[in-house]
Design a protein around this nucleic acid. Structure first.
Lengths: 185, 185
DNA sequence: GACCCACTCGAACGTTCGTTCTGCTACTCT
DNA sequence: AGAGTAGCAGAACGAACGTTCGAGTGGGTC
């Protein structure tokens, strides 16, 4: 069980790398086969639904990872400011663990949006609300807290975009450092 | 001359819409043919280099549009704060005119990055430097100005990403409004 | 030893991809 | 009027796409 699930984990991670680098349409079965070392037919053994199922599993995995590594850290007994810092560090850890740019963004731009768009939208509205709650705990009024939450999401995903556009790997870390400066002290 | 170039302009705009919606790999010749109302062979009459040439023309057009509508407004005799505001309004106008999300981001994520990545990177470094100069004129020290410039780019592109992720069309305008609040008064 | 099931592969399927060939129309120039 | 050219489409090209098939492996259970 644990052996099989570890194998599966590695498989999903390898698939994710291809989808992140080439997008949904660009992730051809040939590329996925090469990246995993499995034949195309073997991939269909693990994902009978083909490419669409792979994307769906990847999407769910990515959502779970972001939730576990980042947004879950918004809760806890510590003061709001400390939790916000942990959250940013957690999101950074997610990007380092599974690789940038975030799969959710990549899949949201491709044709996966037509299928999973509403799932993603609902998830992000939830996450933004969770962020806003912490800003309110930190003393911000509701409107201001909502703005701050939206700001954080913009930077989180904008930094990944600009990193891809400028080709500067450390843009990401600098952006997150700048983000921390703006949090309530 | 003017009639032909207007026709060409419309053609480029229609092609851009497909590339923006579906990405480079997702923009199939069939979709491009349908969107323009031209047969595939006719598209090859206008772009002998095929899909690659279309993407290149689109990229150059997008860079020129962003330069003309947004970054060109950073220069002028007005005070720095006013120019920054004009810049944001200009970028917003660019997105409205040619449609969101910005083609540069879309192409930078696809396989066009391998070909045009360095062009895009150089252009964005230039634009960031231009932004930083204005912040310096507004009184910021070089390091702080550089941080503010990077911040602006992050929000500009992050807002587009989050808009796609949440499916809320007006997230973009709110993000730009929030950005204006943070400028030197 | 017989059976089974998870897993893998090479080879092929039909479809769609980007691209090219051929020829038609409409207009310009002389 | 006739030649030339820009613009366009239908049909087809080979290649690559996502997918499926049939035939194997190997380890675990009766």
């Amino acid at each position: 069980m644990t052996e099989a699930s570890r194998h599966r984990d590695q498989l999903v991670r390898q698939l994710g790398r291809v989808f992140r680098e080439r997008g949904y349409e660009g992730a051809t079965l040939t590329a996925l086969s090469r990246a995993t070392g499995l034949g195309k037919a073997s991939l269909y053994h693990h994902f009978p639904g083909g490419k669409a199922e792979m994307a769906e599993v990847l999407l769910r995995t990515a959502i779970a990872d972001v939730q576990r590594l980042a947004f879950a850290r918004l809760d806890g007994p510590e003061p709001p400011a400390a939790r916000l810092e942990r959250f940013v560090a957690g999101y950074q850890a997610y990007l380092e663990e599974s690789g940038a740019p975030c799969l959710l963004g990549v899949l949201a731009l491709g044709s996966a949006r037509a299928v999973h768009g509403e799932t993603l939208a609902a998830q992000f509205r939830d996450w933004r609300a969770a962020l806003a709650r912490v800003f309110e705990e930190a003393g911000a009024k509701p409107k201001r807290a909502a703005r701050s939450a939206a700001d954080v999401l913009d930077v989180l995903y904008g930094a990944q975009m600009v990193t891809a556009l400028t080709g500067e790997p450390d843009h990401l870390q600098r952006a997150f450092k700048r983000l921390l400066r703006r949090f309530p002290r």
